[in-house]
């Protein structure tokens, strides 16, 4: 087991967003996390990457571990060094730096020039288009290329767990499927992936397991085939919202 979240509760001020959530992601496995807008998927990822504090949020109860790292106590640097990387919602590449500089930013917590150069070469072979545009401004990349850059940046730190927040956001279906395929490939090489998605079709097609978040809780877990009938998800989402209101 690589990533383990137990009974996690998260608040922004007095507003409780995540309520007693437990999750596990193993080596070489993709867990897809589904749920309505505003249900707390991004918040959960923030809690794991120690960036909740800069949004005014707080993990009020529970634990989260990655290998030996206590994710709720560690600072952001320690989390990255422990081998957890988070690709944030909306990609957040730095537009006025070059593509290569954006990649190298991902290695700021890593030591050893040779190791970093080798890693960069690996990522360029994974996403050849980034190598072609290495010197260009990152802001000029297309949406899909920017998503590849964001994933590449996260991979620069040699993670063993990858948190992906809506990689398909705003992408054409073809590009989104391409990126999903790459994620599958990375996972097959041993990476544990927690994939947050709105696009359930893509998520179900690549995931090994699925968890559905509703009203701050995990309302369902299972294999992708359990959710293949669209009505199951529709029902779950509604149930989640109803609980949210109460």
């Amino acid at each position: 087991m690589v990533l383990a979240v137990e009974n996690l509760t998260v608040r922004y001020g007095s507003a409780q967003v995540i309520n007693n959530v437990s999750l596990r992601v193993e080596r070489g496995e993709i867990l897809a996390l589904l749920g309505n807008n505003g249900v707390g998927k991004t918040t959960l990822l923030r809690a794991l990457s120690a960036t909740l504090g800069m949004h005014g949020g707080k993990a009020a109860a529970g634990t989260a571990h990655h290998a030996t790292c206590d994710l709720l106590r560690a600072n952001a640097v320690a989390v990255v060094r422990s081998g957890l990387a988070h690709v944030p919602e909306g990609r957040r590449i730095i537009a006025n730096l070059s593509v290569e500089e954006n990649l190298m930013a991902g290695a700021l917590a890593v030591r050893g020039a040779a190791k970093i150069a080798a890693r960069r070469a690996t990522i360029y072979s994974l996403f050849p288009v980034l190598a072609e545009r290495a010197r260009g401004r990152a802001g000029l990349l297309s949406g899909g290329e920017q998503q590849m850059l964001a994933i590449g940046r996260a991979l620069m730190s040699h993670p063993s767990v990858l948190l992906l927040d809506e990689p398909s956001l705003g992408l054409a279906p073809l590009v989104a499927r391409q990126i999903a395929a790459t994620v599958r490939q990375i996972s097959d090489e041993g990476m544990a992936v927690l994939l947050v998605e709105q696009n359930t079709r893509i998520a179900l097609s690549v995931a090994d397991r699925v968890a559905v978040l509703g009203g701050g809780r995990v309302v369902a877990q299972g294999r992708p085939k359990d959710f293949a009938d669209g009505r199951v998800l529709a029902e779950l989402s509604l149930g989640g919202r109803a609980r949210e209101r109460s």
């Binding site: 949004h55 005014g56 537009a95 006025n96």
Partner: peptide, 10 residues
Amino acid sequence: GLPGKYAQEG
């Protein structure tokens, strides 16, 4: 303002 408001360069 919320501390979560980060200016982003566009």
